[in-house]
Computed example of a mutant assay.
Amino acid sequence: MQSWEGVCEFVAVAETDSFTAAAKRLGISTAQVSRQVGALERRLDTKLLYRTTRKVSLTEEGSLYYRHCRQVLDGLDEAERALSSLKGTPQGLLKITAPVAYGEKYILPIVNDFMLNYPSVDINVELTNRQVNLIDAGIDLAIRIGKLADSTLMAKRISQRINFVCASPAYLKRFGEPHTLSELSQHNCLMGNHDYWRFIDQGSERQIKVAGTLQCNTGHGLRDAALKGLGLAQLPNYYISHDLETGALVPVLNSYQEPNEGVWALYPHNRHLSPKVRLMVDFLAAKLP
């Protein structure tokens, strides 16, 4: 069994280019990763990694050893998934990441329902608006919204979101309702992370630069400002669906509304989909509105 010691740590460092990131992936200390990899190099009598203060990279021998180790670990994963499939019950740890607001409102309640149905699965959920690298962070499943960047990840569309430009009745009574995109320059536009809004105009996508007295990186803050009559806001339906139903916010420029955006489940492409990931993706697709 000594020949296995340090292999997982070495592979994690090779795939993340960092002892710290490898330790985070494996859930152990950086010092432990360093000790295990050092012991592995001494046992093999081969330098596997170049170490500098800025970067960790593979030596030629390390690159060769990594390829073989990766194949062995993939085979072990396949064996464990095969056993799990035979048992018919998903089990083990499932790591998920999702956007904060969407995750709080939709993903977490469904995850909790999933755990009631599959008590043998432990789940670790990280809500963040950062684009987490699934491979480096050891994430099994990511929920992403909107257009996807090209990647080696597999993607399945599990729901959709709709963006609305809206305002309070009080704001519209005071400043009037815009009917064309050019009229946006005459209004106080409450901005999120970007200073432009997206629309469809005569079949083509357009990005319209907007300006206003508030820029805020949270949809809850923009919703509150719109409700208080501070200006127009462009927000996804999951922030304002109740406000639109009650009339607290009024949608405008509906004829320019962009097509519905996809809500996607992303997972690594390099291995077959494990039973617990497959079940979670199907569960989300069935439960999401």
Results as ranks from 00 to 15, higher is better:
Leu190Gly: 04
Leu172Cys: 09
Gly176Asn: 14
Phe175Tyr: 15
Asn188Met: 02
Tyr171Met: 13
Lys173Trp: 01
Glu183Ser: 12
Cys166Ala: 05
Arg174Asn: 05
Ser168Asp: 13
Ala167Tyr: 07
Leu172Lys: 08
Ile158Thr: 15
His179Cys: 06
Cys166Leu: 03
Pro178Val: 13
Cys189Pro: 00
Tyr171Phe: 15
Pro169Cys: 11
Ile158Arg: 13
Phe164Asn: 01
Arg161Asn: 02
Thr180Glu: 07
Phe175Ala: 12
Arg161Trp: 00
Leu190Val: 04
Val165Met: 13
Ile162Tyr: 05
Tyr171Trp: 14
Arg161Cys: 00
Gln160Tyr: 13
Ser185Gln: 06
Met191Ser: 14
Ser159Glu: 12
Asn163Leu: 06
Ala170Leu: 12
Val165Gly: 05
Glu177Thr: 06
Tyr171Asp: 11
Cys166Phe: 01
Ala167Asn: 09
Asn193His: 12
Pro178Asn: 11
Thr180Trp: 01
Asn193Gly: 07
Ala170Ser: 15
Glu177Ala: 04
Gly192Asp: 08
Pro178Ser: 10
Ser168Thr: 15
Leu190Trp: 06
Gln160Gly: 07
Gln160Met: 07
Asn193Arg: 07
Pro169Leu: 08
Leu184Met: 04
Gln160Phe: 13
Ser185Arg: 05
Thr180Ala: 04
Lys173His: 08
Cys189Trp: 00
Asn188Asp: 04
Gly192Arg: 12
Glu177Asp: 02
Ile158Pro: 12
His187Asn: 07
His187Glu: 04
His187Arg: 13
Gln160Cys: 10
Cys189Gln: 00
Lys173Arg: 11
Ile158Asn: 14
Met191Glu: 11
Gly176Ala: 13
Ile158Leu: 15
Ala167His: 10
Gly192Thr: 11
Ala170Val: 10
Leu172Asp: 08
